[in-house]
């Protein structure tokens, strides 16, 4: 650890990790969106096919994936608001560090509101 470059304002800190997380969650949400538009479009051409595809969304393993997806969406949404505040709010840059932890706190809170309900829905039907 002795040879590690001394900390900068950004490297290895909250600024960097929030940026990394924003990218990873963004990519994950993007690929889900592609699939989700296509599966929903089935309602127009093959109603029975739509019900068959949606049945896979109700399995416990995809249900766990949905729980992860919502966690990703919660972080990406709230951190996006943090980015907007850094850009447009006069004191945004000053409070970016605190705001990151507010983002995490709110995301955890909303996730705790969502996850039990969704997981009960998922696991009560297997």
């Amino acid at each position: 650890m002795a040879n590690r470059p001394a900390g900068t304002l950004y490297r290895g800190k909250v600024g960097m990790w929030s940026w990394v997380l924003h990218r990873i969650t963004g990519v994950a949400i993007f690929f889900f969106l592609l699939v989700h538009v296509l599966d929903t479009a089935l309602v127009r051409i093959d109603p029975a096919g739509y019900d068959a595809v949606i049945a896979t969304y109700k399995t416990w393993y995809i249900g766990l994936g949905e729980t992860g997806l919502v966690a990703a969406i919660l972080f990406h949404s709230l951190n996006g608001i943090r980015i907007i505040l850094i850009d447009f709010w006069r004191k945004g840059a000053k409070f970016q560090n605190v705001m990151f932890w507010v983002v995490i706190g709110l995301a955890v809170l909303l996730f705790l509101g969502f996850a039990p309900r969704h997981l009960i829905n998922v696991f009560s039907h297997i």
Binding site: V43, P47, D51, I54, K58, S77, F114, N121, V122
Partner: peptide
């Protein structure tokens, strides 16, 4: 957030979703 709430939080959540729901 509205989409997720209406589709996953209300009622039976994911289990209510099918052709008739849409």
């Amino acid at each position: 957030f509205g989409h997720l709430f209406a589709n996953l939080m209300v009622g039976e959540g994911i289990h209510a979703i099918n052709f008739a729901f849409v």
